[in-house]
Design a protein around this nucleic acid. Structure first.
Lengths: 196, 196
DNA sequence: CGTTCAGTTGACTAAGGTCAATTCCCGTGG
DNA sequence: CCACGGGAATTGACCTTAGTCAACTGAACG
């Protein structure tokens, strides 16, 4: 594993240097091609993944075959560099989510068994896993607030301000469903804002 | 503490009987009056609360003084019997949430210090606290799905089906903001559905 | 050069927001 | 027992905005 990835992991998760190897030995590194799936709905998610390079998305698809993006994952963004269906992972239930690479990417995975082994190996890693759950929750709560609090237009403006990189990396049609609107509406909102 | 509350706690949290007293000794019981606040925004939430009797709500208020209900808590509903601003509680940050009794209620609280003491006292309680975080997350994720996936009307129908008791206990104006709409819209949706 | 797909635009519809008036319900006090 | 007050819910009129369906544009790629 190259030094850059090593540092990224240590920094992202704020792991003590001297303990890092305990985690490292349990990781599986993987290159994935654009459009390749790491999880398909109805499967059980048996890993927690970390984006090292490239970008991925987590999405639902509804009965009409429409896709609703839940999260994007890429290397610049600490809070959602991690991808998994945490629900499916923890409860061993079938997932309604898909995880797909948006471009050729490099990731590492930790399997369910390895994760449990690690979590149970010491107080340190147990706290680590608890902190992970908390992070995932904080981000989820923030999304609820946004969806309840703001109109589509304001959600767009807010996202643009908080995470401008998304608009460079992610096709607009994906961002639309992330914001809870149609691509056409997003296009119109953008137009409305430009001309004001 | 009466036996009913004891059983409720044990059942809700699936605590081993023989360990229950460890938790019990750290709980503070409290009667709250209708409209009384247990948390006001800008304070730090320093407790996790459990509804034993009655009902409460957790809500934001925005710059226009409008209130946006985030959660309701009452004795019949396992998944949200617990009330806290978990974010504020864990991070020791000021809260944007308010927690208020909707009627005269009985609750018990566990303080931040006691919670940490408990969590650190054994693997059992540490796992317990992790499971608590997970529960809170699962519920949050479900709300995101609902908000992204369904129209206001479908959200209403879904809530009615999944949690009809809410419509008996909670005034409609509160449910409206929980669903992300205005009270007028909720009223119209109800009318639309009845007449179809 | 043609195919493909993302993004934009147009025309129209549907649904929720807003503001205001009205009705309903419930409790209190005369 | 009835009259009144106040808050909740409903309704009406109107506006704004997002959804829908379809056509068009433009850039990327083979």
């Amino acid at each position: 594993m190259n030094q850059i990835y090593r540092n990224k992991l240590i920094q992202t998760f704020q792991i003590k240097e001297e303990l890092f190897d305990e985690l490292y030995s349990l990781l599986q590194f993987k290159d994935v091609l654009k459009n390749e799936y790491l999880l398909k709905e109805n499967d059980i998610c048996s890993f927690i993944g970390i984006t090292l390079d490239g970008s991925l998305r987590t999405f639902y698809s509804n009965e009409n075959g429409e896709e609703i993006n839940f999260l994007f994952h890429f290397d610049h963004q600490l809070e959602d560099i991690v991808f998994t269906d945490y629900d499916s992972f923890l409860r061993r239930s079938t997932s309604k989510l898909n995880i797909q690479a948006l471009e050729n990417s490099t990731v590492c995975l930790i399997s369910y068994d390895n994760w449990n082994q690690l979590s149970n190996s010491s107080i340190y890693w147990q706290l680590f896993s608890k902190r992970m759950t908390e992070q995932v929750y904080f981000f989820a709560k923030k999304r609820i607030e946004d969806l309840l609090y703001y109109s589509p237009e304001n959600r767009y403006l807010k996202l643009l301000k908080e995470n401008p990189l998304l608009f460079q990396k992610i096709p607009q049609r994906h961002l639309a469903s992330y914001l809870g609107i149609t691509p056409q509406s997003l296009s119109r909102i953008r137009k409305r804002i430009c001309t004001n």
